[in-house]
Simulated scan of single mutants.
Amino acid sequence: MGATRRLGRAGLALLVVAALGLVTACAGKVGENGRFGVVYMDAQGYYAGVRAGMQQEAEALGRVPQLLQLNAQGDASKESTFVDQVSAAKVDALILSPASATASVPAIRLAHASGIPVICYNTCIADESARKYVSAYVLGDPVRFGALLGNQAADHFLAAGKTAPKIAVVNCEFVEVCVQRRLGFEQALKAKLPAAAIVANQEGATIDDAVDVAERILTAHPDVDAFYGEAGGATMGAVRAVQARGKVGQTVVFGSDMSTEAAQALAGNTVLKGVVDISGIAVGKLAANAADQVRRGELTEYTVVPAPIDLYASPEDGRAWLSAHPDGVP
């Protein structure tokens, strides 16, 4: 959900650039290299990475389209209105992280019926509908995503001599990829630590919501050993809650989605002990390339495009990420 919310229910302001358009080329007539409709689920930094990656790949392909962009704020109705508009405008492709596996289906079906190729990234509609209406889905395997972090958590507790840790989940499970992340996490964790227990699982996809959720969990379960944050907001909300409740040294966090704050926390090595990430820049490049392939007739059937998944497991990894991303764009 990769997915930081990547997958948050609430974002910041609606993003409509230059009357729904941004000319990314330095010169030339507006739209002469085609137009893409692009939907970001919310305003978190991951989507800035997606946008940057799309622009970089388009420039590398030598054909930079006009981007008609929307921050849907996790709202399927705003997403639907925008898709109606770009469908009427006959864009060359629709690239989006749908707000809902079900509520987003009518809008995507309309785009498909209008002859517009649809490329999902990060999230998508339900599989049966995706196979009918979507040309490509850029996806980092969510089960593997969670499993990498489950292994990291198990190794941490084995090194500490704790064989039955109590773990709380701060989730984003209103999207299916987050459910799959948790399943991968639990399977890998319990393969090494069969006595590990998930003592709570509550939604908190944005940082503010996640802080409140994690603090309530700490009140109900003061002996919890770790949090698993299924998305970026959940991760950093859990870190802040641990710090605010004076649980540093007792409760650790394993989380999803890199950002400057997450890298700094990982480098500090006091609370955050591992992060799994799917680079927004990498996903943007893959999505732009898939759209170009569809436009040129090279991609004619529904295709899942694998996105790379990275594990950051040490303070050195956190410092290396900060060095590689001085602008904070993930």
Rank of each mutant, 00 (worst) to 15 (best):
H325I: 04
G274V: 05
C120R: 01
Q202V: 04
V177K: 00
Y137F: 15
Q202E: 11
A89M: 11
G11H: 01
V64S: 10
A93E: 03
V211G: 00
L149D: 13
A196Q: 11
A10Y: 13
R295M: 08
T81Q: 14
R240T: 09
V271R: 03
A210N: 09
A164M: 07
A18L: 10
A136M: 08
A93N: 05
D155I: 07
K273Y: 05
R240D: 04
L14P: 12
L189E: 07
S97P: 12
D317H: 11
L68T: 09
D141A: 09
G53L: 10
G274I: 06
Y228V: 11
F174W: 07
G297Q: 11
F254H: 03
Y302D: 08
D127M: 09
N151V: 04
Q152Y: 00
I108S: 02
V38Q: 04
G249I: 03
A238E: 08
G284W: 06
Y133I: 07
G62C: 08
V83S: 04
A244G: 13
K166I: 07
R35E: 13
L311E: 08
S80E: 14
A200R: 01
V305I: 15
S77K: 13
G146L: 01
V199E: 05
M258P: 06
H325C: 10
K247T: 07
Q152G: 05
E230I: 04
V16G: 14
D310W: 02
L70C: 10
M54P: 11
V239Y: 07
A89P: 00
N289D: 15
E316V: 14
R181Q: 03
D310A: 14
A282Y: 01
E301P: 02
R319W: 01
A197D: 15
R296I: 05
G229N: 05
S314T: 15
A13P: 11
G11Y: 04
V248Q: 14
I217L: 05
F174P: 02
R6A: 13
R109F: 07
Q243P: 01
A99S: 14
S129Q: 12
V305C: 06
A160F: 02
A168Q: 08
A27L: 02
G161N: 03
K192A: 15
D155N: 11
V276I: 09
P117N: 10
Q66L: 14
Q44I: 04
M1A: 12
G28Y: 06
S114F: 05
P315Y: 01
V253H: 05
V169L: 12
K162T: 12
V175W: 03
H325M: 12
V177W: 00
S323A: 15
A19N: 13
G237Y: 07
L193T: 05
A48D: 15
N289M: 07
M236A: 02
G28R: 02
S256V: 01
G255A: 11
P165R: 00
R5V: 10
E128T: 12
G229P: 03
N289I: 01
P306A: 12
A313F: 04
C124E: 06
G37R: 05
T163C: 02
D208N: 10
K78I: 06
E186C: 00
A241Y: 02
N122I: 03
K285R: 15
A287M: 08
G62H: 08
E186G: 00
M236G: 02
D208H: 02
H112T: 10
L311I: 09
L7C: 05
L67F: 14
R63L: 11
A238G: 03
R5E: 14
A164G: 06
A43R: 09
